[in-house]
Design a binder for these strands. Sequence first.
DNA 1: CTCAATGCAAATCATTTGCACACCC
DNA 2: GGGTGTGCAAATGATTTGCATTGAG
Lengths: 165, 165
Amino acid sequence: MTRHSNHSNPGFKAFEQELEVVKNKLTEFLEEHNQRKTPERYAILEEIYKIDEHFDIDFLYKLFKQRQFQVSKATIYNTLELLLEAGLVRKHQFGKIQAFYEKSFFNKNHDHIIMLDDFQIIEFCDPRIEQIKNDFETAMDIEIESHTLYFYARKNKSKKSSKNK
Amino acid sequence: MTRHSNHSNPGFKAFEQELEVVKNKLTEFLEEHNQRKTPERYAILEEIYKIDEHFDIDFLYKLFKQRQFQVSKATIYNTLELLLEAGLVRKHQFGKIQAFYEKSFFNKNHDHIIMLDDFQIIEFCDPRIEQIKNDFETAMDIEIESHTLYFYARKNKSKKSSKNK
DNA sequence: CTCAATGCAAATCATTTGCACACCC
DNA sequence: GGGTGTGCAAATGATTTGCATTGAG
């Protein structure tokens, strides 16, 4: 179980390598789909992969405004849509109107516990989900392309709450 | 596994009883919270419990407009919020901007398969989910108040697709 | 009667769209 | 150069809000 930390490899070199791979993935995708390799797209991808949490469009937008880099919201929306198709980000709706995103290439197949006390998001992975998926796929003759599972939870105050983990 | 059918008991008497119980639930909730028992609230509740599918606000609104009953959208939003707190409806976001709802008192604990071909919604229930929940509750010392699980799937065209079920 | 609920319309907020311009190919 | 991607602002669409009016308690 990880908490807001996706590149568990310590050190910046690991991050650089990760970024490199992801950029290549994007290049690959753009070439396959005959789309242009614009600086905005790579900048957005890079920025996203620096973020270890879940973020929304506005967060990204403000990030770029802080730095010298100029990107419009429309472009951010477009690019995230593109990265979504490329499988490089994941989109969440969390019951809110506003969508949340997270990078996805290096942390596939995980689900989320939303802590209702402080809206902390905890990631987890449980193989039983895959089993359930597989069972339904064969039982119903369907292909499950993706899934989302959210647990909405609160800290247990009744017991001695050992600082969790 | 049920498909868009929640009061599996056949016959209308069963439905009437169901409605009765749900209305009492609402009354109970309103009294507990010192809220008024307006006709709109009961009308909306009743309408919702006649619906065996997932619906959105606009669907409800048009339903009332068709009949002679006058309810504003603001009231529908307010009332659904209230019914949500009362545990009498469930809200979904399905990755869309627009929220979907469904009645909830008589069909607790089920999850959804969203068919991407035709956006049909299939409900299912798998005890393993509860197990996973319980495991996390004890392991992390939290209380999981609720959860949402969606499988996004497509019909398998490759194999001989026996008309599912 | 009083105050919470309703109805209506205007406001808000996330997201989408249209169009002129820029720049990747 | 040509056409796609970007930036901006306006449009859209779901939801929320403000306020006058209504009606439940």
